[in-house]
Design a protein around this nucleic acid. Sequence first.
DNA 1: GAGTGTGAATGTATTCACAGCA
DNA 2: TGCTGTGAATACATTCACACTC
Lengths: 206, 206
Amino acid sequence: MVREKAPENAALRLSLYLRYLREMGEEESISSEQLAQLLGTSGVRVRKDLSYFGQFGTPGKGYTVGKLREQISKVMGLDRIWTIALVGVGKLGTALLGYPGFRKSGFHIKVGFDVKPNKIGRKIAGVPIHHPYQMPRIIREQKIHIGIIAVPAEAAQEAADLLIISGIKAILNFSPARITVPFYVKLRNVDFASQLEVIPYYIVNR
Amino acid sequence: MVREKAPENAALRLSLYLRYLREMGEEESISSEQLAQLLGTSGVRVRKDLSYFGQFGTPGKGYTVGKLREQISKVMGLDRIWTIALVGVGKLGTALLGYPGFRKSGFHIKVGFDVKPNKIGRKIAGVPIHHPYQMPRIIREQKIHIGIIAVPAEAAQEAADLLIISGIKAILNFSPARITVPFYVKLRNVDFASQLEVIPYYIVNR
DNA sequence: GAGTGTGAATGTATTCACAGCA
DNA sequence: TGCTGTGAATACATTCACACTC
């Protein structure tokens, strides 16, 4: 049986399923239809998404919450701790440092970088802030996996380049700038300027 | 000539094109291929996206920056001011209040809401903060168009409900909670917990 | 010649319909 | 009977190939 290849954003939906499963009791049993209800999607949607990765349920019964959570965590690579370096500790960066959702799912922001002298050497939300020129050394020493960019648009590409020469393999970019990275670096953009700009389009066109 | 229907996220890409056009001289001329280069996409991609909305270029020459900018702004509904109410003025909310990209493209956050007594009555980044029970009155009086939700997950649905009874027609949700809204309300989610959670998946699977 | 604009072809994602298991 | 899991059908989005215009 050759398993069908998962569509590009099935993984994104798995993370949503996981979020709901985390709020439920270990031993509880849940059907695809019930889980779908919570998310405003369809049972087939859920079953199909899960089917790309394995067979996790029992016909006639559904899924055991604890088991399913474990299995999704595994395929998502969330069965371990991931360490993060945050570049740019302005208002947005600081908000991210305090964001509870990250730590909950196994992400540790271990270090921050900023060029502002009044921030360097301090700790913000318990995280030490350094000057970017220290980045390559610190990221290597601390074996950081993921970089988050929260600098202004003008500085975004430079921040990315620094992260990459430091050996980072994945970047989450919160700046509105489109940055370019080599093929071996995974880049995701959280572009809220665009998300807001698109709203009037939907209001105006019905 | 019956114009083809625009795919779901063509509008999202238009907003990106717009971002680059804003940084260029009014009279300059640009080809689809050049614009594509800046964004790391293809010329056809750009031309096709534009073609859903009209004929904006001149063959053999390209597009005039100022004109194209104006035309895209128009189809996106960005040729006017849009007013916003922000619900939740914590760290993330405060960061959004100071976010320069919003005002640049014609969005005005006119009012904030928060339950914390020490915030109510104050102005943050020049924006007055009120208690949520004032929401229906203020939103109606000030003719606010769009609601931004930046409250913790537990309070998100409640915030949405309040915005909706206040007459808001579109919501941008920054909380990780999935909220439900009636069909006539346009909802977009900026879900950065998921965006981060999906990264390990891509690292682990090559 | 250098570019736009667009039907047709391909590729990708979602939904349907149902076989099969507890 | 109630639910999972999945090939097949459909819908949707992207890319190709090229006619056409300045």
